[in-house]
Structures are given as structure tokens and as C-alpha cells.
């Protein structure tokens, strides 16, 4: 028996908090954001022919995570160099743990909020949290949107 073709392909990785996560999927003519918990899934569609634009504004989460992680790592490194013996080992261990915060701030924390705007809605795509990922997403959707809007009247 032939398998059903997949209607949706994943656009972006899952992102969310405890109990709720967001995913982004691409169909032939629309983008679907899924907000899921253990019990329900909620869908928000944005049709490609309706997209007026994408907007991105900065977020401070990445900046603060980087600053806090960097300060803690520097502090524990200084303490480790000042102490000797077991104290230094403990400080190096804490510096290693705090470097995870620094890495999170540098590579994974949110540094932008991303929105898809149509005439009737403004959809925030929650799991587009990094500028690089947002630009890649725009580059991927751009030809699809322009093809869907080819016959729009009133275009300049």
C-alpha cells in the first residue's frame, strides 16, 4: 500500500518551556505554527499569499545570558587562580558549569522576536529565536511567497 505523502515539512526545531513547545511547519501554500502540550495542539496558519512582510526586533535574553555567564566564569577563574588545592578544583568546576550559561547566551538564547504580518493578523513565530535562523527562514520562504503573490494586483 502506498504511503500517504507528507503534507508538512519541518521548518524549525522545537522550542518552548516546560509543558509547552512550539514547532513550525511548511505546507504547499501556508506555514503552520503548532503550540503543543501533552494534551492538546493548537494551530496557527499563515498563508503565503497573505504575507505582507516579516518583522524582527531584538531581544535582550541572549545579551544578559552572555553577560551573566561571562562575569561568573571570569569570577570563578580568578578565584581558582587565587586559591590552591581543593578550593581551586571546586572553583574550576563552577567555572565550567557557568561556561554552560555563557555558551547558552552565545549560541542558543533568544536574540530576536520574529513576526509574520498579514492584513488581519500578526503571528509571532516563537521558535524563531536567533537572527541567523530568521534570515535563513526568510531566504527559504522568499521565493515561495513571491510565487504565491505573482498575480497580486496593486503591486508596485
Amino acid at each position: 500500500m502506498a504511503r500517504k505523502p507528507k503534507l508538512y515539512q519541518k521548518l524549525a526545531r522545537m522550542r518552548g518551556s516546560v509543558g509547552t513547545h512550539f514547532t513550525l511547519w511548511l505546507a504547499a501554500d501556508h506555514v503552520l505554527q503548532v503550540e503543543a502540550n501533552m494534551v492538546t495542539e493548537r494551530y496557527q496558519r499563515v498563508f503565503l499569499r497573505d504575507v505582507q512582510g516579516f518583522f524582527m526586533r531584538p531581544s535582550r535574553e541572549a545579551k544578559w545570558a552572555t553577560i551573566i555567564g561571562g562575569v561568573l566564569v571570569a569570577l570563578f577563574c580568578v578565584l581558582a587562580l587565587s586559591f590552591g588545592g581543593d578550593g581551586a578544583a571546586v572553583c574550576w568546576a563552577f567555572a565550567g558549569l557557568c561556561s554552560l550559561i555563557l555558551l547558552y547566551g552565545l549560541f542558543f538564547a533568544r536574540n530576536c522576536h520574529f513576526y509574520a504580518v498579514t492584513a488581519v493578523q500578526r503571528a509571532e513565530w516563537t521558535n524563531i529565536a536567533r537572527r541567523g535562523k530568521a534570515r535563513k527562514l526568510i531566504a527559504r520562504l522568499d521565493p515561495l511567497i513571491r510565487a504565491a503573490q505573482q498575480d497580486v494586483s496593486g503591486a508596485p
Partner: peptide
């Protein structure tokens, strides 16, 4: 706030 944007033709549709 500095807003980075990409716009498409349908924005001019009445």
C-alpha cells in the same frame, strides 16, 4: 526599537 523588515507585494493590495 530597531525593526528589521522584509516586505512583499501584497502589502499594496487595497
Amino acid at each position: 526599537t530597531i525593526i528589521e523588515y522584509t516586505l512583499y507585494p501584497v502589502r499594496n493590495r487595497p
